[in-house]
């Protein structure tokens, strides 16, 4: 599930989709540095045509948080 989110993370972090799960975070993915976290959020915003608030950006600690905020923005992640 959540293939669209995972595939963007895979593309930005340059790692295989199989290495990504909801617990993935800067602690578990080496290429997830602070700059790449801006890149990731920017590319998620483009892909899902939405914008994260500054609170959401600060609070995002892992993939589960990203999915939580996308759902909050009314985005269905049932792929």
């Amino acid at each position: 599930m959540s293939k669209r989110v995972y595939s963007i993370i895979s593309k930005v972090m340059d790692i295989p989709i199989s290495e990504i799960n909801d617990e993935s975070s800067p602690e578990t993915i080496e290429s997830w540095d602070s700059f790449n976290s801006y890149v990731l959020l920017d590319e998620l915003e483009t892909e899902f045509k939405t914008e994260f608030s500054i609170d959401e950006v600060v609070e995002t600690k892992n993939v589960a948080d990203i999915k939580k905020y996308l759902k909050k923005h009314g985005i269905e992640l049932n792929d």
Binding site: V12, D14, N36, V39, E43
Partner: peptide
């Protein structure tokens, strides 16, 4: 192309 394309391609 989004920026991640360039960031990752540059490494390779």
């Amino acid at each position: 192309e989004k920026l991640s394309y360039f960031l990752n391609k540059a490494k390779k």
